[in-house]
Structures are given as structure tokens and as C-alpha cells.
Nucleic acid binder design. Structure first.
Length: 306
DNA sequence: AGTCGAGTAATGCTTGACTA
DNA sequence: TAGTCAAGCATTACTCGACT
């Protein structure tokens, strides 16, 4: 895990990365609580197979805006290079923001994976690494350490490069899960799917009804007993505020005050009916969409059907 | 601490089955 | 044919969790 501090070395490796197809990237930030967090490290891996860390380069960019700008322009803005991050929105904000191209976020990939295929208590990098790739004993202590200090400790460097390794491994496992869970709709076995569907339908109903019932009872009971927290759950109430006005009054004030306010209003069936003939004078926008609905058939038993 | 998208719960709307 | 009802959607207002 080469740790690079010299300008020339960093420029050279970034130049090399411009020909990469995919890069796995993580950053460490100093003063993250302040209003102006600054980049401390950019860790880059260009070979997902590497588990030794030899291919993770740690670029020290603390107080080196020139190097950061160079990285952003050479790598982040290049749509030919796929950049993989965990919770990309955080890192990308410091690395070119909206103009960054071709970003992949493993957090989003993981969340998109159906829960039953990837049942996890949370989607932290650490959790994904241990469940998906069997990396246990991950120490996250350094995450909140002082990334603005120099020299960095050995532990900090170790932590910094390991995150990239986890990232690449997680990414590849997530891609596997994705292909597995997104089969070609043309090729699906409708019989097998239907069998499974009816198989769990009854369980689903039973569980759901009990679950919802319990939820209601607990809510009611906690309110009645004035308990806000038990060892199982907590109950929080909040006020929902909705501001309403009569339509006629709104129209009047907009006209009288010359307020620039215009937006489409959905004409519900009731409104359409109320408008009656007048509807024809309006230049309505009609949006047509198809909603698909699955209705299970009651499988009739062969013996009973006669 | 700050951000931003995703999740959640309540509420209202639409639709289609059912009835008379 | 019109009225009623429940299931399923859509929308809204708010919270949560991920990163450092």
C-alpha cells in the first residue's frame, strides 16, 4: 500500500489512472465536523482482485488543493472511468460534486438488493464486508481519528487502505447478487415463480395480519399506559402540519396581487364531474399510464373441480 | 455537524368487484 | 345502471442512516 506524499509521484499515478476502466476509491476527511471539511487522503485501487493492498495507492492531499483539482479533472470528470465508492454522495461532494461522471455507489447497490437476498441490520461498509465477504474483526476505530494530523499513525494508514479492499470485494459480490436477482424477464419460469408465490402467499397474509395487529395494540397500549419506551421499541409522536386554503381565495389573491404562480392541478374524477361541460373549454394535459396488477387465482383442486 | 436520498406512516384517490 | 366497499396506488410530511 504505497503511501504517496510527493507531488510528482501523485501526479504520475493519477496520470496512469486516466486509462483505467474502473477505480475503487475511498477518502478520509479532516475536520469533518467543521463547516469546511478538507480532504486528507484519497485511496485508490485499480485491481479488484488485489487483496494484499499492494495495489492500493494512498494519496496524501492534505492542504494540496492543486492535487485535488488535478484528480477531479483527470479522473472524476472523465465519463470513461467508472468510479466506485461506498456512500458516493459524501465523497463526491468533495470530489467534483455534480460534475463528476460515471459514479457507482455500493451503498445504493446494496439497498437495491431485495432484503431477503441480503438481510442485514444496516448497510455500513463494515457490515457488508463481514457478511458479504467474510472479513471479520474489522476495526473501525480509526474512522473518527484525526485525519488532519501528520504524520499519520500506522493504524491510520492500515485502516485507509483496507477500506478500498473491502470496497472492491463488496462491489463484486453485489454485482453477482444483482445478476442473480435480475433474470431476463423473457426467460423466467412462470410455473416455478407462481408455485413459490402461492406457497408463501398464505404465510405472508398470516404474518402480516398478526404483525399489523400487534403494532396497533402496542401503540394503543403505550399511549394508554403513558410509556414512551420499552426494551423492544419506542413510541414517538409528532405534529403533522398541513396548511390549507379555499381554492377560490387562492385564485383571488393570485389575480389581485399579480403573483407569479402557476402549476398543473390534477383534475380528479370528482372535479371532472363537477366541471361538467366546462371541462371542454380547458386545455387539459392527459397523461396515460398503465398500472399492472397481479391477482392470484384460487387454484382449484383437481379432485374438487368435477 | 451537515447533507441528501431513501424509508415510513398517514391520508386521500382510483379502480374494479359486487349488489340490487 | 348506479351506489358501496376494500385493495392498491400516489402523495405528503417527516425521520433516519450513511459518510468523515
Amino acid at each position: 500500500m504505497p503511501y504517496l506524499t510527493s507531488t510528482n509521484e501523485i501526479l504520475a499515478i493519477v496520470a496512469k489512472y486516466t486509462t483505467a476502466k474502473t477505480l475503487w476509491i475511498d477518502t478520509e476527511v479532516a475536520e469533518y465536523k467543521s463547516r469546511n471539511p478538507k480532504l486528507s487522503l484519497i485511496q485508490v485501487l485499480d485491481d479488484p482482485e488485489d487483496m494484499s493492498g499492494d495495489r492500493v495507492y494512498i494519496l496524501d492531499v492534505l492542504d494540496r488543493p492543486d492535487l485535488v483539482v488535478n484528480f477531479i479533472e483527470q479522473i472524476m470528470f472523465d465519463s470513461a472511468i467508472e468510479k466506485v465508492f461506498h456512500n458516493a454522495s459524501y465523497d463526491v461532494k468533495l470530489l467534483g460534486n455534480k460534475k463528476a461522471k460515471n459514479i457507482t455507489c455500493t451503498l445504493e447497490l446494496a439497498k437495491k438488493t431485495p432484503y431477503y437476498l441480503l438481510p442485514l441490520p444496516n448497510y455500513k461498509l463494515q457490515t457488508l464486508a463481514s457478511v458479504l465477504c467474510n472479513f471479520n474483526y474489522i476495526d473501525k476505530q480509526e474512522q473518527t481519528s484525526d485525519w488532519g494530523q501528520r504524520p499519520l499513525t500506522e493504524e491510520q494508514i492500515d485502516y485507509a487502505y483496507l477500506d478500498c479492499i473491502y470496497l472492491a470485494q463488496i462491489h463484486s459480490r453485489l454485482l453477482e447478487l444483482q445478476t442473480e436477482s435480475n433474470p431476463d424477464a423473457e426467460q423466467e419460469d412462470l410455473i416455478a415463480l407462481g408455485t413459490r408465490y402461492t406457497q408463501i402467499e398464505e404465510q405472508c397474509k398470516l404474518l402480516n395480519s398478526e404483525f399489523e395487529h400487534l403494532q396497533e395494540r402496542i401503540k394503543k397500549a403505550m399511549q394508554a399506559q403513558n410509556v414512551s419506551e420499552t426494551s423492544f421499541c419506542k413510541l414517538t409522536g409528532y405534529e403533522r402540519k398541513t396548511v390549507k386554503v379555499q381554492f377560490a381565495e387562492l385564485v383571488k389573491i393570485v389575480q389581485n396581487q399579480g403573483i407569479n404562480l402557476d402549476f398543473p392541478v390534477t383534475l380528479t374524477q370528482k372535479l371532472q364531474k363537477d366541471l361538467g361541460q366546462n371541462l371542454e373549454q380547458l386545455s387539459v394535459d392527459i397523461d396515460i399510464s398503465t398500472a399492472w396488477r397481479l391477482t392470484p387465482k384460487n387454484q382449484v383442486n383437481e379432485d374438487e373441480s368435477e
